Amino acid sequence: MIKSLFLDRKTLKELDFGIIITVILIVLFGAYNIATCSGKGSQQVKWLILSLAISYIVLLIDYVDLKIYVKIFYWLCMILLLYTLYFGRTINGATGWVYVGFYIQPAEIAKIALIMMLGVKLEDMEFKVNNIRNLIILGIYCAIPMVLIIKQPDMGMTMVLFFIVLGIAFAANLNLKVLGAGILIVIISVVGIWNSGHFIKDYQKGRIIAFLDPESYALGDGYQLLQAMTGVGSGGFFGKKFTVENQANANYVASNVPEPQTDFIFAVTTENFGTLGAIVLLSLYGFLIYRIIAIAKKAKDGFGMIFSVGMATYFTFAILQNAGMAIGIMPITGITLPLTSYGGSSLLTTVVSIALVLNIGMRRKKIVF
């Protein structure tokens, strides 16, 4: 599969260095903010170095050669999710971690496996997505990881998967009436699950209820949300790091919110660097999503297009959700900020997935003999 340890000139010319630079800037900016609230910034940088090394290997392999292994990869991930339910470690109420010398979150890997599997299956089906048989098959492939993840329970990742599938369905030209009916079924299912007494824990319900009126739950489920919002507001436009008299008080979020380096890293960022810092960070994300969509449009095959669309959808939803919950316009769901939040397996998975998008962009031109 790897024909050379170096990229040839023609392929290298097609590499989107803008994406690479943007990813590195986002991760380093995130690592700095992680360091200010938890002291784990150096660990994040180490994970970045490892991620870039593995990403280089991914770039050496023509992504077309990887497609034959997607089904195996998908089912291995499903087995790993099942194993996690019974033998995984429980953190913050969710049994979603497995120790392999270090802790990994299998749901992060399964997310990528699902995107790849949908790309392969849609290509096999010649994108005849409105065929009822094909639709059922695709639905089953989507339902398996969602059910296994919701049983952990990890509602945040389940939501991520749902919106990724939604984005892919739209890109695959699923009939809008079918799409609307699917969304309606999901809404009805959510209501049923909410009232079933299963899957959704009381603390997860409390977070959503508190989001609607955080002041009334200031000493309970609304506490984290109010503290995050206070931290965001205290940063002003330029942030405490640029205001000498406020630097000593630049750890409000870290002092009042548990695990600020993951769920509330956007609040930490805004406290440190203010609205200006938030604008810069969101602009970098905007550029990254724009370039990924550009690669999706020019991909030489259906798999490349679907995978790129899936990644663009993931970034869009996760960013809106994470930033939104820090400023009080979204409920707290535990969805982390891609590339910015602390987490080794999450960073590794995301960076390597972006490398696959770059691979698709590098090899977008069909070879003519």
Rank of each mutant, 00 (worst) to 15 (best):
Met1Tyr: 12
Lys10Val: 11
Leu12Gln: 10
Glu14Cys: 03
Phe17Asp: 09
Ile21Thr: 14
Leu25Asn: 10
Leu28Ser: 08
Ser38Val: 08
Gln43Pro: 08
Gln43Asn: 15
Lys46Ala: 14
Leu48Met: 12
Leu52Glu: 04
Ala53Asn: 11
Ile54Lys: 07
Tyr63Ile: 03
Val70His: 06
Thr84Arg: 07
Thr90Cys: 13
Ile91Gln: 13
Gly96His: 01
Ala113Arg: 07
Met116Thr: 03
Met116Gln: 09
Asp124Arg: 11
Val129Met: 01
Ile136Ser: 10
Gly139Lys: 09
Met146Arg: 00
Val147Ser: 08
Ile149Asp: 04
Pro153His: 00
Asp154Arg: 00
Thr158Arg: 00
Met159Thr: 10
Met159Trp: 08
Leu179Asp: 00
Gly182Cys: 01
Leu184Trp: 13
Val186Glu: 06
Gly197Asn: 00
His198Asp: 13
Asp202Arg: 10
Phe211Asp: 09
Leu212Asn: 07
Met229Ser: 11
Thr230Ile: 15
Ser234Gly: 05
Phe237Cys: 07
Phe238Leu: 15
Lys241Leu: 15
Tyr252Phe: 13
Gln261Glu: 15
Thr262Asp: 01
Phe266Val: 02
Ile279Tyr: 10
Leu282Glu: 04
Ser283Asn: 01
Leu288Thr: 02
Tyr290Pro: 05
Arg291Thr: 03
Ile292Val: 11
Ala299Met: 07
Ala299Pro: 01
Ala312Tyr: 05
Phe315Asp: 06
Thr316Leu: 14
Phe317Thr: 09
Ile335Glu: 06
Val352Leu: 09
Ile360Val: 13
Lys366Thr: 15
